[in-house]
Design a protein around this nucleic acid. Structure first.
Length: 671
DNA sequence: AAGTCCATAAACAGCT
DNA sequence: AAGCTGTTTATGGACT
């Protein structure tokens, strides 16, 4: 009777399961992207690798500055010191037009609203304003730079004892680096302030990122475009006749969601000359007029202006809102700037990863049926997944071609993410738990890919049992309550921040099922511990005495590790925020590191004892792991704190952390 | 092909 | 009563 109903529901369940188990990755991938928490706010970050980029920009700016100075010599005018210090000018617009003086955003707005100027005049004005602002920024910057240099030189002279030329050069280099750093810090501060003002949202899970070395000056075309946005909202009937050389902001936005238009991004300065917009602006802005509801800043009755989300019942009210709330002012300008940088960086990163992928494909002789690649942070996912698939499909042969993308999986922020989705459901990492099968230390993988797992919703290639064990072993007292185990899962893996009911059930199921997990009654309830003997019982017999398996394991992991390393290198290179969280609140780093050493020793002992042939996979494995262990510096301030986070305390800061996880808020207290 | 491992789903009981 | 915890059973896919 109960049986029947049981089987009934189960048959139901299995129907679902057929979808969710075999093909569950496909579904889950789809589900993943559904969530809005992830990826909606693109990472704003730039890495040191973009130094060249900065320099380029500086060069461009320098030229601009030069031009301006020449102009000034002609007009005999001096630019004002700072535009925010500028007294509220009551200067007639016409005067402003003739004499390059910075006017305040408010004034600008007035000008716009009063519509006293023709669009052409406005454009000129805007260009002028922009150039002036840029000039001011540059002057300030160079002034500072000079001061710094002098300071450095002075210090050096004081230090006096080392008057060697080498040292001078070194010092100058240092000074320059410091200045760069300083500039970056300034920019970072700017970003932070934007964030505080709600102009820029950064995901809680994401680290407060890297620096923003892009020049902050807005290029004239951008400003023009801004103006265009504003005025087009004003006067919808206005035609876009004179914007042939302008860059449509909407284009930029659109391009971020349609990554195929890479031309724009490849050259961050492209927008300066306005050429790249040839294919877009007019058409799109027109189409927005014709199909108002397709306005990129308006959707689902909500204003999609970054950080806004104001509800607008209809398009008209949206326009009003856009007009009033997002007019041309400091705030909007800043937001625009940020958005442009976001887009630029994303595209830059995309380009890099595309290139990387291409090289990989070429190297592996893989003929990609679908050369177009996919966007954004998640291409990381694809890389890793690909790596796993490579290792898993057949450890000793080259990876198969990623199957052609069929189902675009609904990424939140962008178009179809080809590789990601494909490899995701092609691979089905779930079915290959190499760490379990082949005794590859779980902790090392987690440590290596910690930031990745934390931020990308990729299923970790470990069994629940392994993960649970890892969670418990990482805890200072080698025991965790169920809730703490949950928390570890959500903390360590983005993947487990959704479908909580499912995986929590699985966790409980595993705890109960496996003998290696021992429940211990405690004062404050029950905690779970690991019976290591039991756990080991079920692992080694497979591998011991089976050289071929060992070989598999080695080469398998050998494929993964370097690729993961490459992935991380890529992330670092592009300053993917994932990377930076390592220093931000990583309670387990120390534990992981030691665990890695432990397990590495164990694993290597294991394999060494059996290994007779010189498996090609081995050296990479050895090479990679220590590097990762070593390279993760343990933040001093994290050193003691974090460990206590995982202790028995129910109110550890971690729990607050978990609150952010959308799916099912983890219980903070469990009595 | 059979056995094993694992994920998933679900029913259920006990407890708070 | 609801939710959490823990146990158990069933089922199906992947892999050996």
């Amino acid at each position: 009777m109960m049986q029947e109903s049981g089987t009934e529901t189960k048959s139901n369940g299995s129907a679902i399961q057929n979808g969710s188990s075999g093909g569950n990755h496909l579904l889950e991938c789809g589900g993943l992207r559904e969530g809005r928490s992830n990826g909606e706010t693109p990472a704003v970050d730039v890495g040191a690798a973009d130094l060249a980029h900065v320099q380029q920009q500086q060069q461009v700016a320098r030229q601009l500055l030069l031009q301006q100075q020449q102009q000034q010599q002609v007009s005999g005018l001096k630019s004002p010191k700072r535009n925010d210090k500028q007294p509220a000018l009551q200067v007639p617009v016409s005067v402003a037009m003739m004499t390059p003086q910075v006017i305040t955003p408010q004034q600008m707005q007035q000008i716009l609203q009063q519509q006293v100027l023709s669009p052409q005049q406005l454009q000129v004005l805007l260009q002028q304003q922009q150039a002036l602002m840029l000039q001011q920024q540059l002057q300030e910057f160079y002034k500072k730079q000079q001061e710094q240099l002098q300071l450095q030189l002075l210090q050096q002279q004081h230090a006096g004892k080392q008057p060697k030329e080498q040292q001078q050069v070194a010092t100058q280099q240092l000074a320059f680096q410091q200045q760069l750093l300083q500039m970056q810090q300034l920019q970072q501060q700017h970003l932070l302030s934007l964030q505080r003002q709600g102009l820029l949202t950064i995901q809680p899970g994401q680290p407060a990122l890297p620096l923003q070395p892009l020049a902050q000056g807005m290029i004239p075309t951008e400003l023009q475009q801004l103006w265009k946005e504003v005025t087009s909202a004003h006067t919808t009937e206005e035609t876009t006749g004179n914007n042939h050389s302008s860059l449509d902001l909407t284009t930029t936005c659109v391009s971020s969601s349609a990554p195929s238009k890479t031309s724009l991004i490849m050259n961050p300065h492209a927008s300066t000359n306005g050429q790249l917009s040839a294919h877009t602006p007019k058409r799109e802005s027109l189409s927005h007029e014709e199909h108002p509801h397709s306005h990129p800043l308006y959707g689902h009755g909500v204003c999609k202006w970054p950080g806004c989300e104001a509800v607008c019942e209809d398009f008209q009210s949206f326009l009003k809102h856009l007009n009033s709330e997002h007019a041309l002012d400091d705030r909007s300008t800043a937001q625009c700037r940020v958005q442009m940088q976001v887009v630029q960086q994303l595209e830059l990163q995309l380009a890099k990863d595309k290139e990387r992928l291409q090289a990989m494909m070429t190297h592996l002789h893989v003929k990609s049926t679908e050369p177009k690649t996919a966007p954004q942070p998640l291409n990381l996912v694809s890389s890793v997944t690909l790596s796993k698939s490579a290792s898993e499909a057949s450890p000793q042969s080259l990876p198969h071609t990623p199957t052609t993308p069929t189902a675009p999986i609904t990424p939140v922020t962008q178009g179809p993410s080809v590789i990601t989705t494909t490899s995701m459901h092609t691979v089905g990492p779930i079915r290959r738990r190499y760490s379990d099968k082949y005794n590859v230390p779980i902790s090392s993988d987690i440590a290596q890919n910690q930031e990745f797992y934390k931020n990308a919703e990729v299923r970790p290639p470990f069994t629940y049992a392994s993960l649970i064990r890892q969670a418990i072993l990482e805890s200072p007292e080698k025991q965790l309550t169920l809730n703490e185990i949950y928390n570890w899962f959500t903390r360590m893996f983005a993947y487990f921040r959704r479908n909580a009911a499912t995986w929590k059930n699985a966790v409980r199921h595993n705890l109960s099922l496996h003998k290696c997990f021992v429940r211990v009654e405690n004062v404050k309830g029950a905690v779970w511990t690991v019976d290591e003997v039991e756990f080991q019982k079920r692992r080694p017999q497979k591998i011991s005495g089976n050289p071929s398996l060992i070989k598999n394991m080695q080469s398998s992991h050998a494929y993964c590790a370097p690729l993961n390393a490459a992935l991380q290198a890529s992330m670092a290179e592009n300053s993917i925020p994932l990377y930076t969280t390592a220093s931000m609140g990583n309670p387990t780093l120390g534990n992981l590191a030691s665990a890695i050493r432990e397990e590495l020793n164990g694993a290597m002992e294991h394999t060494n004892s059996n290994e007779s042939d010189s498996s090609p996979g081995r050296s990479p494995m050895q090479a990679v792991h220590p590097v990762h262990v070593k390279e993760e510096p343990l933040d001093p301030e994290e050193a003691e704190g974090p460990l206590s986070l995982v202790t028995t305390a129910n109110h550890s800061p971690d729990f607050d952390h978990d609150r952010d996880y959308e799916d099912e808020p983890v219980n903070e207290d469990m009595e």
